[in-house]
């Protein structure tokens, strides 16, 4: 029991459950299924990019990827262009999206490593280029995803949204890698003390490269799924995921100082963020008030997490 309470991911899940209960109290139990379904669908996108952002933040102070929205938009746009709405091209589109992610991740890390740029600046400068590339290739066109792919992205298996299944599967894989795999140990060691990790024989630069490649790959995948889910790629489709990806990592209990990851917390926080907005919506708050309360919640959680850290 003691070990359960000390799990940092517990709080994000408790908060998500509390907000869910409050929403149901207002709208009635009949709405519970629908609300849960929507939370799983929309939470999946935040969870996928959040897991990527978490890997990078785990690398230690100063590590962050600001290019997630641009990579999502570019991957979604180019994938839809490659598929051109033709049936049977879903895998081609997935390949294009993952290639975009791979390329962006490699470019980001090249800037960080070769030009010795702080990751904030490297990913920011690169994201401006990706964004331009997306604007240029998206110009005035509105391609729909292939019907089968759109059905899959908005569909369900055994009552669970397919995108949520993908998100959970990815979370499980990353969780297993971090908790059981050698790579995960290396990543955590690098985040806790890169110097000590290097002396202990951890290939620190390769670990950093893999983290920046992973986040871009996940962003590419999220862009592909989101474009298929929402029936097309829009230039602002990634916009909200910059702040959201950082928020779910922090609310999920991952240390912003690096060295400690928390995969289950990311999913809990992703559900929480969606449920909060929909609850405030149900209680009749307008868009401005919803945003303000979201901000208050983020700050409150940081203050609370900090107080807990100081006590121990």
């Amino acid at each position: 029991m003691q070990s359960l309470i000390s799990r940092p991911w517990l709080w994000a899940w408790l908060a998500a459950i509390a907000v869910f209960a409050l929403s149901i109290a207002l709208s009635g139990a009949a709405q519970a299924g629908g609300l849960l379904y929507a939370a799983l669908s929309f939470g999946a996108f935040a969870a996928i990019v959040g897991i990527g952002q978490m890997l990078v933040i785990t690398l230690g102070p100063g590590n962050i990827d600001l290019s997630i929205p641009a990579v999502m938009t570019l991957a979604g746009t180019l994938a839809l262009k490659a598929m051109d709405g033709a049936p049977g091209t879903a895998l081609l589109g997935l390949g294009v999206a993952l290639l975009v992610g791979l390329g962006a991740g490699a470019a980001n890390f090249a800037l960080i490593r070769l030009l010795r740029l702080p990751p904030i600046i490297a990913t920011l400068a690169a994201s401006l280029l990706y964004q331009s590339l997306a604007i240029w290739s998206n110009r005035g066109l509105r391609i729909k995803p292939p019907a089968a792919l759109a059905d899959f992205a908005t569909g369900r298996t055994l009552g669970v949204p397919n995108v949520a299944l993908i998100g959970v599967l990815l979370a499980l894989v990353v969780w297993w890698l971090l908790e059981r795999g050698l790579w995960g140990r290396w990543l955590l060691a690098t985040g806790q003390n890169p110097r000590a990790a290097r002396l202990a024989g951890v290939p620190v630069e390769r670990v950093r490269a893999s983290a920046y490649l992973s986040v871009a790959l996940l962003a590419g995948l999220a862009g592909y799924l989101l474009a298929s889910f929402s029936g097309g790629a829009a230039l602002n489709m990634g916009q909200q995921y910059l702040l959201l990806s950082i928020a779910v990592v922090v609310i999920g209990g991952t240390s912003i100082a690096g060295g400690f990851s928390n995969v289950p917390g990311v999913w809990g926080a992703a559900l929480f963020m969606f449920l909060v907005v929909s609850m405030l919506n149900a209680y009749g708050f307008d868009a401005g008030a919803r945003m303000m309360l979201t901000g208050v919640i983020i700050i409150a959680i940081v203050v609370a997490a900090n107080a807990r850290r100081r006590r121990t």
Binding site: V250, G295, V296, I297
Partner: peptide, 25 residues
């Protein structure tokens, strides 16, 4: 309280943005 500025200002950006929407929908 030794808080991470990057996260606190991130939260503030929601608050400022929300206030702006309230003033000017």
């Amino acid at each position: 309280f030794d808080l991470p500025a990057i996260v606190v200002t991130l939260g503030m950006s929601f608050i400022w943005g929300g206030l702006a929407l309230v003033i000017m929908p």
